[in-house]
Design a protein around this nucleic acid. Structure first.
Lengths: 350, 350
DNA sequence: ATAGACTCTGAAACCGATTTCATACATTTG
DNA sequence: CAAATGTATGAAATCGGTTTCAGAGTCTAT
């Protein structure tokens, strides 16, 4: 186990050329079956392992995909990463991960590192601050596939993986309206990001379609953190009249908001019905249990890698699709049920 | 941006040898300062980027560290990974991540991939199933540093990063006893893993030191998942007499157990006081809020990488320490307060 | 003045796999 | 039977940095 075995050692051992060894190990058709078997056996017996660097250097390919996420310590992104790792691993690809911590500066630096690491493809979920895609230009120029998921941006030759945020928000808001809410507040994140912009639209269209007025004053934007939920609750408590429904763009924030409202003596859902987004564990823990949108994180990760690998291997010819929509569900729990209807599950996207 | 620039291109441009270019870019002392500056300027201007594969191939070093975790979608491991990524990134190291999904079979496969990827060092938190360290032998043999964190195992030349699980569990259990509990159940995970074995010991010693009997029947082992918490609660409800305190080895499981007990009509903390472990978000959401051990995940990740990098760079000579203990705190909340003491924070480890 | 030390630069070998081009031999076809 | 086709293998160039060894030029000390 001391010295590394190379194809030259195997070649010497079997009295063949390195060329043939290389071809045999790559299952090249121009090598005799019996020879292949001999070589394969010898390689295993000698404890040979391919040197990826020599191989990559020559092939100009790395078998590595890069991933840039806003935060690693988020339930949603953890689920996505778990899905990504699973598929990448199965397909024999390495995964390099880095986080932007929601800043454009780190996102740019990460993109550069990924580029220098010569990843074969890149998966990205954008930071709050990102305004444009200049830092990915080099990838586009070199034809390295880039796929955006969840927090996406439009680009001529990039595929995006999302859920139908507009429709999900529309259903959530409509559900509140059906429960009798007429004055609904929406708490959401940075509207530069499609996920929040689309949810706002869904909220707005639902109001309009049900002949309820839409007003900017009922939209609170923030960081969507635990802290932000608390602040939003305080803002809500200062409203006059008080709203009777709240639709929040993520569960962490929704739960913290709900808790703060409760502490202030608001009865949920009687005084105010609340809906979150993501179906995190906390949505099932908080009391009352939180109505929310089930967001298929793991599946989103798996799909993203699969599509990326197809693009890397050039086998995505027939599939021009620029945006892939995953299904999401409205999960109705106590926090939104003003009427005593039985809990049910509604499917809202394609 | 089409063709890649190499040091040969720069050499030709400046009428120097590739040798000098290489040395200059690596800040080798034997190159004149002015020459270095010229080269550095030209490199920047020409858009040069080093080819890591050529470099790695020659240097037999990869600037990459590997990470094997049980699950990527766990709040604790997410925090650790965030810490690891932060430091690794700052120090210019790439990170390759894979998950064992708690199986020995995947852990072995992951270790092999990491080895073939020639990582410079490896960080590992063991799976439930792992019995021995045979799959890391090749790393030991080649002198590639391996560091275990959280779920660790003893090995002559491996450093471990942990918290003092025994002491934390001892304090948690003692706190329950101080609150008047005399019949305490302990819910924990696979006792092959140090974290669970040590917590069991801490629980046991606390009982003994307070002259309370220890009995196997009060120890429930399981998968520590949401589901496992529910099952444990059912098992507890079938006990006669019912216990008056429960110490659970993680928050997810504790919360689910607490919820199930509440639904069955048990009053928390009056009938049963409950303590968890980890200080996950859910511990602050559940009602009553869960007393728990604060577990410094992010810090653990940061320390683990720092120590690993010291070992990689051979600068850890003076530091023989084989185990590094991080501080943890008992965070007292409502779920354990039978008496109406004010909430306080106790520090329990060094 | 000259050996010895010091500073800076370059030629060429090297890391280990892949790939192009050539070739030797066997087999098939007209 | 000669030409064409197919099969199996190898020599050598290549990917792009790094490193060893040698050497040229400059400076210090005896």
């Amino acid at each position: 186990m001391e010295k590394e075995i190379t194809i030259y050692d195997i070649a010497r051992e079997l009295d063949l050329s390195p060329t043939t060894i290389s071809r045999a190990l790559n299952d090249h058709p121009a090598v005799n079956q019996k020879t292949k078997q001999r070589i394969s056996d010898a390689a295993a017996q000698m404890g040979y392992r391919s040197n990826m660097f020599a191989s990559n250097l020559r092939k100009q390919r790395t078998n590595t995909i890069g991933l840039i996420v806003p935060r690693l310590d988020s339930p949603f992104h953890s689920a996505v990463i778990a899905g990504i790792e699973k598929v990448a691993n199965e397909e024999g690809y390495n995964l390099i991960i880095s986080q932007s911590l929601e800043t454009i500066q780190k996102e740019v630096a990460n993109a550069r590192t990924m580029f220098d690491s010569r990843v074969d493809g890149l998966l990205v979920s954008l930071s709050f601050e990102t305004e444009n895609l200049d830092h990915f230009e080099r990838f586009f120029n070199k034809g390295i596939p880039v796929i955006f998921y969840d927090r996406v941006a439009e680009h001529r030759n990039c595929t995006s993986i999302v859920i139908d945020n507009l429709q999900a928000a529309y259903k959530a808001t409509s559900h509140l309206i059906e429960q009798g809410c007429t004055n609904i507040v929406h708490i959401t994140g940075n509207l530069k990001r499609n996920v929040y912009a689309d949810r706002l639209k869904g909220y707005k269209y639902a109001l309009i379609d049900h002949d309820l007025p839409f007003t900017e004053n009922n939209v609170i934007t923030g960081q969507m953190t635990e802290e932000a939920g608390k602040l939003a609750a305080e803002q809500i408590l200062a409203m006059d009249p008080l709203p009777d429904g709240i639709f929040v763009s993520n569960d962490t924030c929704a739960v913290s908001c709900l808790k703060t409202l409760k502490q202030a003596g608001v009865s949920i859902p009687k005084d105010m019905a609340v809906i979150g987004f993501n179906n995190d564990l906390t949505s099932r823990v908080v009391e009352p249990n939180l109505t929310t949108i089930n967001y298929p994180g793991q599946e989103m990760g798996e799909v993203a890698v699969k599509v990326l690998l197809m693009q890397i291997n050039g086998s995505s010819e027939g599939i021009p699709s620029n945006t892939i929509n995953l299904r999401s569900d409205l999960i109705i729990r106590e926090s939104s049920l003003k009427s005593k209807a039985t809990t049910k599950k509604k499917s809202v996207a394609t």
